[in-house]
């Protein structure tokens, strides 16, 4: 076989290999989310109220402290868990109690959850407790949304803006 023919065949082999590689670089298509569905994403990073765990110091506790450190209220370092509930169209979507982050449990509680929901009008009810209370909630919100197919509807929690906010 002549060298020219061998070079031509080498080019042909590498061309076929590269064409195969190029084809697989973006084909076949992958559908990871149904076309008629939307997505609701609930996410927040929120430090719950540390004051909720505060209690009056006992006389024994105060007696053990130097006079200049005798504070009448003892506040633990760790934060209470954040309790959240979400209903979509009256049906439970999420019930979760999220522990405060950090080794000592003194960081913010973090949530990142996503839900695939049918496109169309929905009512989203949200409730959150960040004070460690056993009953009731500190924040509530209701959102009425019409979700388009493939829409990504994000709900965050920002106490400074009044609680639950759509982003």
């Amino acid at each position: 076989m002549s060298p020219a023919l061998r070079y031509a065949l080498t080019f042909a082999v590498m061309l076929a290999a590269t064409a195969g590689i190029a084809a697989l670089s973006d084909w076949p298509l992958y559908r990871h989310h149904p076309a008629d569905m939307a997505q609701v994403k609930l996410s927040f990073s929120h430090g719950s109220d540390r004051k909720a765990g505060c209690r009056p110091a006992t006389a024994e506790e105060l007696a053990k402290l130097p006079p200049n450190m005798r504070r009448p209220v003892v506040c633990p370092r760790d934060r209470p868990s954040v309790r959240i509930e979400a209903d979509l169209d009256g049906r439970p979507l999420l019930r979760a109690e999220i522990r405060a982050g950090g080794i000592a449990g003194d960081g913010p509680a973090r949530l990142y959850r996503k839900f695939s929901v049918p496109a169309g009008p929905h009512v989203l009810d949200l409730r959150l407790s960040d004070t460690g209370r056993a009953e009731g909630f500190d924040y509530t919100g209701r959102m009425e949304v019409a979700l388009a197919p493939a829409q990504n509807f994000v709900v965050d929690f920002r106490p400074a803006e009044g609680g639950f906010v759509a982003r």
Partner: peptide, 27 residues
């Protein structure tokens, strides 16, 4: 192959939507 089948983008990212169908690089 680059001239015959150039690598192209798949439309701008939009975080308000879910990119339902994508052309994955299977490698």
């Amino acid at each position: 192959v680059s001239l015959w089948r150039p690598a192209l983008s798949q439309g701008p990212a939009d975080l308000t939507t879910v990119p339902s169908e994508v052309g994955l690089d299977w490698f």
